[in-house]
């Protein structure tokens, strides 16, 4: 029984490490800040959640040690990592970082141009 749960935990850990590798390749290869941010926030969040779940299962099965800090860490990372990604992306857009030159749609720019009072509020 213990070996089965260790196998499950090892599978979670390998999947999490692989997802973090995928996120690094996305950050190296994608063309602009927004696509890189897309790769970084989603993939590494899921990867770290899987890896911490594997850690939790390992310590629970191997030592009978119920570590609530890992559960809190999973919950906290799930809440905050997308928010941090959103904030960086917003800061990049507001400081006029260019989109990739082959991207075709910028809805935020159109909506801001149609309502100029919102931009010049400062």
């Amino acid at each position: 029984m213990t070996e089965i749960f260790k196998f499950i935990s090892g599978a979670f850990i390998l999947l999490g490490a692989f997802l973090s590798l995928v996120s690094a390749f996305g950050i190296i290869r994608l063309p602009d800040v927004y696509t890189r941010n897309h790769a970084a926030s989603k993939t590494s969040t899921l990867g770290i959640m899987l890896l911490l779940t594997g850690t939790f299962i390992f310590f629970f099965v191997e030592h009978g040690h119920f570590n609530s800090r890992i559960l809190l860490g999973i919950f906290f990372i799930f809440m905050t990592a997308p928010v941090a990604g959103h904030l960086i992306s917003r800061a990049a857009y507001n400081t006029d970082v260019k989109l990739w030159d082959q991207s075709v749609e910028d809805d935020l720019k159109e909506s801001r141009e149609s309502k100029p009072s919102l931009i010049e509020r400062e």
């Binding site: 973090s20 890189r36 941010n37 926030s41 590494s44 860490g73 800061a91």
Partner: peptide, 16 residues
């Protein structure tokens, strides 16, 4: 912002 994205992901990798 590129560098901040990389630093954020590095923090998450450090947790791993």
């Amino acid at each position: 912002p590129d560098r901040v994205v990389a630093l954020d992901a590095m923090g998450i990798n450090l947790i791993a």
